[in-house]
Design a protein around this nucleic acid. Structure first.
Lengths: 87, 87, 87, 87
DNA sequence: CGGACAAGTTTGCCAC
DNA sequence: GTGGCAAACTTGTCCG
């Protein structure tokens, strides 16, 4: 019913483009997995040295919250400063 | 009540070590966020070019499942081979 | 300070409804536990007959992945068909 | 190298038995999924009526802990009673 | 905003 | 009995 050149949903360049996109995403996914694995390693290392993983995770979360909060605060400050023409 | 050198739960080297661990984890977490952001960018790009995100994600998932399935299958084959003394 | 009819967060019917919900969930949880126990029994039985549990679990997982993959594939096909107006 | 009747790891009845075991487990797994789905439904229903899911889960967990604790206590009581020849 | 999807956390199981 | 491994559940995120 269909020939391979004109009735496909994607033309040849579209197929190439799609292939590129998929490969980029799969490569990034591998990177993400690699980083996760690295983190697991560090956690395992810490555990092996007797650190409490639950507490450690809690510390990381708190520090992250603090950073986010600090950034938010700075953003507001900048906003106010620019609002009064100070920046 | 406590001096800083002898009664703390962590001695000075332990504190240093902990600090190092936390910094490594935070660095890795940044990496992970960066990779996630990159993926978001690629998805947004693909969307902008008219590709269907849901279908795209489905394709990635399927390809990943195929890889996982192939790996799992090989593992089982090895298991069976060793079970019958072939390895 | 509070009478029991007007200032509670949940009125009487709300309390009844909540009780019903909790009981349904607890009943379902019992069912789930029962099924899990049944599975444990079957696994124990199989082990007693000399089957390798690890291999058995691997087979189940693989068959489940196959089913999932097939379903996913069909979903994608449908998606593509609808994307080109075939459905 | 191998014929199909004598050198396989599992003889015919063993294969049948294995098939039976797998089917029982897969059936039980379906049951488990069904129960989980039912629970999801009830949770969704409760959410739709305005109940707080997190709190609801907490209540279920607490009640389950209480039951476990009570059962444990009763077990100890029975143990003591039987120890003094009361049962 | 609400539901789907993925990540992280916790729990249970098997091997040593 | 313990410790690593794997599965289940819960939480958070992202798209529609």
């Amino acid at each position: 019913m269909h020939d391979t050149t004109s009735t496909d949903v994607l033309d040849q360049s579209g197929q190439m483009r799609l292939r590129t996109i998929i490969e980029r995403l799969e490569r990034l996914d591998e990177d993400k997995t690699a980083v996760s694995d690295d983190m697991k390693e560090v956690f395992a290392e810490a555990k092996g040295e007797g650190y409490d993983l639950k507490a450690l995770r809690a510390v990381l979360k708190l520090r992250k919250m603090d950073r986010a909060k600090r950034l938010e605060l700075e953003a507001i400050v900048d906003l106010y400063l620019s609002a009064i023409g100070e920046i």
